[in-house]
Write a protein that binds this DNA or RNA. Structure first.
Lengths: 343, 343
DNA sequence: ATTCGATTTGCACGCGTTTGCAAAATTGCG
DNA sequence: CGCAATTTTGCAAACGCGTGCAAATCGAAT
């Protein structure tokens, strides 16, 4: 029943008694329009309820002001925060967020073309890596791509990533300094560089310090996985006395098994350290010591890289590492010389 | 260094020795193309690396295949799941998600125009309500708008919503049947219909059953708020023996204060019931009894309403209510006749 | 008034598609 | 082989806007 047809700049021009260019100019920042026609156009636009068609605009300007954001596992509170942070920062610089949520890591190669068809100005990809074919496609299209919490050897796309290996080493130091003898690592999903790097740093440093090689279980980055992994660890004759989990939600699962199911005391019987710094880690029920990823700083760096490359697509790719920060809490014994840990 | 200029259908046409229409037709479902030219075009497109420009396409077809999704508080695990569910369902029907994350509820009136400029096919708005002026704008533009977990009296826009009042009544029944004498309600943000309706149902039913009017505190829908509200409740001389929280994360905060800080026993000293059914409510550290919102069902209903109205904008608005489900766990005493609760 | 420079305006083309329409090609059938 | 019925194809006009360029307007100084 309502005015189905959208009102176009043509209509406004007619109403205001000016040319289409005039209305276009009053709606583009820093174009040459006299104040008088500007007011006239604004008035006409107001009465007609006109607002410029962003789709048509991006067709001519070749800039969509949209960036593709592909995310896996929004449900993980860490990535929820990442999403929130990115979306706030993008919106604040006038970019829209075209969200692509992928279930399986493999879906990325299908998601990306879909994004590119929408002529996004750039792409941010979290927690997964794109095939080199895809990377090439983007590079060829001059579309900046930023990997978040992944990086690639062949430096064809930019990345910002927590220094996972260093963080892993730091946890190893912490455990050894606190006098732990029998460590364990609960890994995330297989084949993810985040989990692998954290594990590598942890194991390497443990070896350097002459500690026994730790037990390793897999928890698939989810609560139930962490819980089950801890279950397996404590079903052994020789359970660990210190556990490093590749992320916080697994650590929460492990803690629940340890404290609520096995009735063990933390950190007297076993120390637990997580990774991410999600809110729940600070709650009284958990008091989880964790390696916090500095989300705001990471997303800021990513934005910086992205915006620079949108402005000048010729800029070479760049990868930045951000250190994790130890947040000591009650779930882990601390060495006498508290916070001596440096790799 | 790379081919900066995008490859267009013109290029493919030239390469394949056909007209632009031909290539357009091979890329649009169910258009009239002979198999031979179709193959030729496909081949040419492949060698040139062509993929149709969705922006240009939506300019002519008047369908962007994008829906605007405005969300507040993605960080709340309940809404994270809602977002994930919507994005999966939208993608599965070939729609892209244009995400708008708003910090303050008031920002919606700025967000919506921005979305409309991008010619989204429809809009889903969670946990906030739009001004009637905005609603009118959308109606006039023929853009379907679905409110999620909000509804409006003047039935100008569609909505799907948990039956919050009924759920509130159900909790009241539960408490009274379990023999609780002194109830309390921890509210969410002021002026949100979700919190108000839950409160109203709870209070009304309590009154109907002849119980003393409950204490009411506000927790602003966040963990810290729930914690602080519980702190206030238990600083009194006459603390409650049953608390209904307007959402789960506040309930977790309340539980942590009750159990970990005050050292009280749940449910012996006090029963706690939450709302939403977030994952953490089922963890051994909490075992929170809660009124679960049936996310999948709700998003399905919303999708149904949305897609129908995208297909036919003339369809009248429609609002559907979905019942919440009681998930009994250890945090609340149960009446002898377990689950007798019906409003 | 006249001239010159600065500012504003309109024209028309382009952005990369889709699509109605009519011409061309193909098919089936006698 | 001829003719009509059916596909297939290309042309050209949209879709709604930005923008270079030249014409028009304005302001001020002479």
């Amino acid at each position: 029943m309502a005015g189905r047809k959208a009102v176009t700049s043509q209509d406004v021009a007619r109403e205001a008694g000016v040319s289409r260019s005039a209305v276009s100019r009053t709606f583009t920042e820093g174009a040459s329009v006299s104040e008088r026609t500007r007011q006239r156009v604004l008035a006409a636009a107001w009465t007609l309820g006109y607002s410029p068609n962003a789709i048509a605009r991006s067709l001519t300007t070749q800039r969509s002001h949209m960036v593709g954001l592909v995310m896996a596992d929004i449900t993980n509170p860490f990535y929820a925060k990442v999403l929130e942070s990115f979306s706030e920062k993008l919106q604040s610089v006038g970019q829209r967020v075209l969200l692509f949520s992928i279930a399986k890591v493999h879906d990325i190669d299908q998601a990306l073309p879909a994004l590119l068809q929408y002529q996004v100005d750039g792409v941010i990809i979290t927690s997964t890596v794109l095939s080199s074919a895809m990377a090439e496609t983007c590079a060829k299209a001059g579309k900046p791509v930023i990997l978040f919490n992944r990086y690639v050897r062949e430096t064809t796309t930019s990345a910002v990533c927590t220094d996972n290996a260093a963080a892993g080493r730091q946890v190893a130091n912490l455990f050894v300094d606190a006098g732990h003898r029998r460590c364990a690592f609960i890994a995330g999903t297989a084949d993810t560089s985040t989990s692998n790097d954290r594990q590598r740093g942890f194991l390497d440093r443990l070896a350097e310090r002459g500690a026994t090689p730790p037990l390793v279980e897999r928890g698939d980055y989810c609560y139930e996985g962490g819980f089950a992994a801890a279950e397996r660890l404590f079903a052994r004759d020789d359970p660990p006395d210190a556990i490093f989990c590749a992320n916080d939600v697994m650590a929460l699962g492990a803690l629940d098994l340890i404290r609520r199911v096995r009735g063990l005391r933390v950190p007297e019987d076993v120390s637990v350290v997580g990774f991410d710094g999600v809110d729940a880690s600070g709650w009284p029920s958990y008091e989880l010591t964790t390696m916090e990823q500095q989300i705001e700083r990471m997303t800021s760096e990513a934005m910086e890289i992205l915006l620079a490359r949108i402005a000048d697509p010729a800029l070479p790719p760049e990868t930045r590492f951000v250190p994790a920060r130890l947040v000591p809490r009650a779930s882990a014994r601390l060495p006498r010389e508290m916070l001596s840990a440096v790799s």
